[in-house]
Computed example of a mutant assay.
Amino acid sequence: MLFFLTGHDTKTPGGLPIEDGISWYLRSDYFKNWPSTWFYSYTSPDEVMLGSDLKQNLYCHLLCGLVQRDEVTRIGSTFASGMVRVIMVLEDSWKELCSNIRSGHLSEWITDSGCRNAVSMVLGGQPRPKLSDEIESICSQKSWNV
């Protein structure tokens, strides 16, 4: 299950701090100490779920999910708009995601050190050309309509 978070630094135009409904829970000691064998396990490391940059988080969530696609059983978001945002990032970034998977290395623009280190562990520096080709074949289709 994936959750997409806004970070601690997100503010309204008037300067008020904001955070989505699930962020407080994912940052709580209750969640952090919850055994992964309970109910759900996650393809994204905690550092991705708790990162402070939404663009980097979404990209890294997608990358982790694609690399571990055989383990993904569901994708979740508190609001439908979160899922729409994820699809838009996938549409815009699938070539770069495939490049990261093909090389086994994360793009340089991912600068959040915790997120970068955790996702690099998922990638393991291991090139996956076959997986990259499969994803590229699907995403390069003329239409994504079902």
Rank of each mutant, 00 (worst) to 15 (best):
I138Q: 07
S36Q: 11
H8L: 13
Y30P: 00
H8C: 15
H8G: 13
H61W: 09
Q68C: 07
N33K: 07
G82A: 02
Y30Q: 05
Y40D: 00
S93C: 14
S77I: 07
S23L: 07
N33F: 09
V67Q: 02
G124D: 04
E134R: 01
H61I: 04
V86W: 10
N33H: 09
K55I: 06
T6S: 15
S140Q: 05
I110L: 06
S132H: 02
Q56F: 10
G125P: 03
S99Q: 11
G82K: 01
E136I: 09
P17G: 08
G15M: 00
S132A: 12
D46V: 11
R116F: 05
E134L: 06
S140C: 07
N100T: 10
N57K: 02
M83V: 11
F39Y: 12
I110W: 02
T37D: 09
A80I: 10
Q126S: 13
P127W: 08
F39Q: 04
G15C: 02
C115S: 13
S41Q: 07
Q56D: 01
F39H: 09
Y25R: 01
F31T: 05
S143G: 09
E91G: 15
S137R: 06
A80S: 11
L63N: 04
K32M: 03
V72Y: 09
S44E: 01
M88T: 14
T73L: 15
C60R: 03
K11Q: 08
G104C: 04
D112I: 08
R128Q: 07
W94C: 00
K55L: 13
S41Y: 11
I101Q: 03
N117P: 08
S103M: 04
M88E: 13
D133M: 07
S107I: 08
G7L: 00
D92F: 15
D46Q: 13
W94H: 02
E91K: 13
S107D: 09
M49I: 06
S77K: 10
N145I: 12
C139I: 05
Y30E: 01
S23I: 09
T12H: 03
L106Q: 04
D9C: 12
R69I: 06
V67W: 01
R74N: 10
I135T: 00
T37Y: 11
G125K: 01
L2R: 10
N145F: 15
S143H: 10
Y42R: 01
S113R: 12
Y30L: 11
G125S: 07
G114R: 07
Y25Q: 04
V119Q: 02
Q68P: 02
M49T: 01
